[in-house]
């Protein structure tokens, strides 16, 4: 029976997160201010309505954990960016790479951590 996960071991997941985090820290990404206002609006729409199907439209949680600024406060931004891009094995959190660029994910994480959407 295949577990519904992109990677089967927690070790592999942690290794990937660390690798991604260091790659991201190297600063290869496009700055978020290059995102158009239209794209930003569609990202917020995606966040509320599609991420919201598990995390709640008001980001207070559901099948997935809450995404409020308080809930994310103690979590490093790079880890959150990696979680969104690569998903979370063993949970329903899917990888969003392909649909979202690293710049877009970083902008979304900053927005969530700012608490502006609450």
């Amino acid at each position: 029976m295949v577990a519904r996960a992109a990677m089967t071991s927690v070790g592999a997941f942690v290794a990937t997160v660390l690798a991604v985090a260091s790659a991201l820290a190297a600063g290869a990404s496009v700055p978020a201010d290059r995102l158009s206002p239209e794209r930003k609006a569609s990202l917020v729409h995606l966040l509320r309505h599609d991420c919201g199907s598990c995390h709640g439209m008001r980001l207070l949680g559901g099948l997935g954990p809450p995404l409020t600024a308080q809930a994310l406060e103690a979590k490093p931004g790079e880890m959150l960016v990696a979680t969104v891009l690569y998903g979370r094995p063993g949970t329903p959190m899917p990888p969003w790479r392909g649909a979202l660029s690293e710049t877009e994910v970083r902008w979304l994480i900053d927005l969530l951590k700012s608490g502006e959407l609450q």
Binding site: M1, V2, R4, A6, S53, L63, P92, P94
Partner: peptide, 16 residues
């Protein structure tokens, strides 16, 4: 329907 995926990796699920 145990193992209906026949061992293939499922796609990421964006909505339950």
């Amino acid at each position: 329907l145990a193992g209906y995926g026949r061992g293939e990796q499922p796609l990421p699920v964006y909505k339950m």
